[in-house]
Design a protein around this nucleic acid. Structure first.
Length: 504
RNA sequence: GUCCCCUUCGUCUAUCGGCUAGGACACCGGGUUCUCAUCCCGGAAAGAGGGGUUCGACUCCCCUAGGGGAUGCCA
């Protein structure tokens, strides 16, 4: 039987925070490759980080992928023969596999405290040594280890790593990659809370789910040896590895929300068409064999050739995306454009929310639209002075906006009352009259000093657009000379962490 | 620090040893349009540097430089 295995690919996002544009990017290439080869595409939720994963975020990932038009053949929502597709529901599987490794002495329990580990890291950094676990617990006898476990000591499972030689593996796009084993840490496989780390869960799942091609971001190249080792220890065939270049900010760093809107939901709310977004993503690190730049998902799949991927990290260019979006909009008939507008936001559902807010403030029917426009735009025009309103100096405004951004990001249930609570909390902690704080927010969020009720408006706008508006406000302040430099930002973040609790 | 990856216009890219280096976005100029947008025409704009290999190198190899990534009980 030398039947070629069916192609099975997957995207495996972790549900922490807003659905990332990079997830759609990776998903697109996985999807196209699978479909091109009559294979299957799987969506797996990697929610092994219990402190950061939320079901809200998971739902957003489903919605976001659905919005761009990438449908998984198997997923937590759709089910499938290799489920469950949510890692938090597979802990028994990981535990079983981890035990196998411990029994075969490929892994061992480690009792080192996180304090010792940070101290160790600090020392290594200072001594300019290679940073990593020093193997203190690796020499513990099985009996001693068991005794400590029985005593109820907290522990993790680490994997043993060869002490010399190189790990050699193949990357479809780059060819042979060789990484010295000395560079590979004795990775934690099982955390003290009983959940696996990415590395263990990922390898186990990819094998059990019969993933044939692991197509993922370049950031994973360095940990591939850990995965290779696990495949080896389990005696499994390894999949083909394809590492895609990383999407970048204009300054070439890895795409981050600090510098770019990265939430798919933002693009949705800001009025981009999913086809245009997907089309644009298909041009990142890739080009069609015939050179065409405007194409549908079907056309993309039809001619897809994974070996055409180019490796320089592409900069995500909002201008070009906007142009593409414009091209798509112009192609629509007026009727279908109207349809797009309705499915977007310009519909009765929205007006039913807006009208009660506007009604008490109306003198004529004609007053409605000016009041409501801010709900249907992306960037607002206003003078920076209005933001400050002679009440707050630019320095303080910057601080308040940044803190609000961080606080608003943390809200799990995006509702008027939770928003109010958050803002109220900020005004208290920052010792600023709510009235003053709100004045600034009114301008940042609605573009005017006087507008519809703020918290309701923020709710209707959605978190992503609100965060973007704050970003624009900060940008305005920055162009006026109040820049939150790296150093200042770091300091602020530190203060913030102690005052408001850590940001993840 | 260490390791890994990458390197063509400002940006996304084409080129798989023959190049007057092509296209797209952005930019500039001109035309169409009551304005604007669209549309059309035109322009400026690139092979990081240095060594090889070769009749010939943007394409292959090496070195240097630059950029990025990894170095977590995050993924």
């Amino acid at each position: 039987m030398t039947n070629k295995k069916t192609v099975r690919t997957r995207v495996a996002p972790s549900p922490t925070g807003a659905p990332h544009i990079g997830t759609a990017y990776i998903a697109l290439f996985n999807y196209a490759f699978a479909k091109k080869h009559d294979g299957e595409f799987i969506l797996r939720i990697e929610d092994t980080d219990q402190t950061r994963s939320t079901s809200e975020s998971e739902t957003e990932i489903f919605d976001a992928l659905k919005w761009v038009g990438i449908n998984a053949d198997e997923s937590p929502a759709a089910g499938g023969p290799k489920g469950p597709y949510r890692q938090s529901e597979r802990t028994d599987i990981y535990r079983k596999h981890c035990n196998m490794l411990v029994e075969n002495d490929k892994a061992y329990p480690c009792f080192c405290s996180s304090e010792r580990l940070t101290e160790l890291r600090k020392e290594q950094l200072a001594a300019k040594e290679m940073v990593g676990y020093d193997g203190l617990c690796s020499t513990l006898s099985k009996e001693d280890a068991q005794k400590r476990i029985d005593n109820g000591e907290s522990y993790v499972i680490r994997m043993r790593v060869p002490e010399s030689g190189d790990c050699v593996f193949n990357d479809r796009l780059r060819g042979e990659i060789s990484i010295p084993w000395t560079q590979v840490d004795q990775q934690v496989l099982m955390k003290s809370d009983g959940f696996p780390t990415y590395h263990l869960a990922n390898v186990v799942d990819d094998h059990l789910m019969e993933i044939s091609h692991v197509i993922r971001g370049e950031e994973w190249i360095n940990s591939t040896p850990k995965h290779v080792l696990l495949y080896q220890h389990f005696g499994w065939d390894r999949p083909e590895f394809v590492h895609l270049p990383l999407l970048r900010n204009p300054d070439q760093s890895k795409l981050s929300k600090r510098k770019n809107p990265t939430s798919i939901l933002y693009y949705q709310r800001a009025g981009y068409l999913p086809q245009a977004v997907l089309n644009y993503l298909g041009l990142m690190g890739y080009s069609m064999p015939d050179g065409s730049e405007i194409f549908s998902l079907d056309q993309f799949i039809e001619s897809f050739d994974i070996d055409r991927i180019s490796l320089g990290g592409p900069i995500f260019d909002l201008q070009k995306l906007a142009n593409f979006n414009g091209q798509y909009l112009r192609e629509l008939t007026p009727d279908s454009l109207l349809g797009e507008l309705k499915t977007w936001n310009l519909n009765d559902d929205m007006w039913k929310e807006v009208i009660p807010l506007a009604q008490p403030r109306l003198k004529t029917l004609a007053d409605l639209m000016p009041m409501a426009t801010f709900l249907f735009t992306d960037k607002l025009e206003y003078a920076t002075e209005e933001l400050l309103n002679n009440q707050i100096d630019a320095e303080r405004a910057t601080r308040l906006l940044k803190i609000s951004q961080w606080e608003l990001e943390k809200i799990v249930n995006w509702h008027g009352d939770t928003i109010q609570e958050t803002i109220g909390n900020i005004s208290e902690k920052e010792d600023i009259k709510t009235k003053k704080l709100l004045a600034m927010f009114f301008v940042a969020i609605t573009g005017k000093k006087v507008s519809l009720p703020l918290f309701n408006s923020m709710m209707l706008l959605g978190r992503d657009l609100v965060l973007r508006r704050i970003h624009y406000a900060l940008e305005n302040l920055a162009t006026d000379g109040t820049v939150l430099s790296g150093k200042k930002l770091k300091k602020l973040q530190k203060e913030y962490n102690s005052l408001y609790g850590n940001r993840s």
